[in-house]
Design a protein around this nucleic acid. Structure first.
Length: 114
DNA sequence: CATCTGACCTAGT
DNA sequence: AACTAGGCCAGAT
């Protein structure tokens, strides 16, 4: 069966998200742009919404919006709060906001020398 | 079946 | 520099 663009998109998002090292966070726009979906940042969120249950697990908690706000925290499982996971990795979060976001921000391009 | 919202961002004015 | 509008795709009402 032909690989649907949807799956490819999700596949790209998951792959890139999994590349985010612990203690670092990335943004939807950065990921979307890196996979060639500039402007389609919304789709990234929709794709990450399906990441729960994927194997290997996708560290979606390391993906925040451009302002460093954990906008998707409400969509996270109660068993693994986004803030709790980020704090567990050393990321300081206060009021759904990443402290020193500019310092913990991880660039997809700088990561693998694209 | 039509309309709007939604883990958002970029670009134009 | 700030604000407005448009774009992207799918799911839900």
């Amino acid at each position: 069966m032909a690989t649907l663009p949807q799956d490819e998109f999700k596949r790209a998002v998951y792959d890139l998200t999994r590349l985010i090292p612990a203690g670092r966070v990335s943004t939807y726009g950065a990921i979307a742009r890196c996979i060639g979906a500039s402007g389609a940042s919304r789709r990234v969120g929709w794709a990450l919404n399906q990441c729960f249950g994927e194997m290997p697990p996708v560290p979606a908690h390391r993906v925040v919006n451009r302002l460093g706000l954990l906008t998707g925290a409400v969509h996270f499982p109660v068993d693994a709060p986004m803030v709790d996971q980020l704090r567990a990795e050393g990321v300081e979060v206060f009021d759904n906001q990443v402290m020193g976001f500019d310092g913990v921000f991880w660039d997809p391009w700088k990561a693998g020398e694209w």
